[in-house]
Amino acid sequence: MTYIELIHIIVPILIVGASIVAVLLRDLLAAVIAIAAMSLLLSLEFYILQAPDVAIAQAGVGACLTTAIFVIAIRATKRMEGEA
């Protein structure tokens, strides 16, 4: 097993782990950061699958712009889940 196959196994596990963390967290800002980490790992997965175009688009839109929109929305409302 070469090291690139090892990366192919590790990175999807980290993606699933980051998604589960994003679902379980009660702090919405931390959940958004977890989604950004998931998106960045997904971009890495696209890159090691030899699709650098999709990787750049995913890193720009998924990891940064979506996070910015979520952060703006959270700072204008409530931060913790379940607050009145």
Binding site: P52, D53, I56, A57, L65, A68
Partner: peptide, 29 residues
Amino acid sequence: YVIAHGHLTPGGGFQGGAVVASGLAMLLV
């Protein structure tokens, strides 16, 4: 750079525009 070298290297109008818009959004946040 990604926009201007779209016909030579990976990337293009959409990808480079998303990167620039990400920087602007970071500054705004």
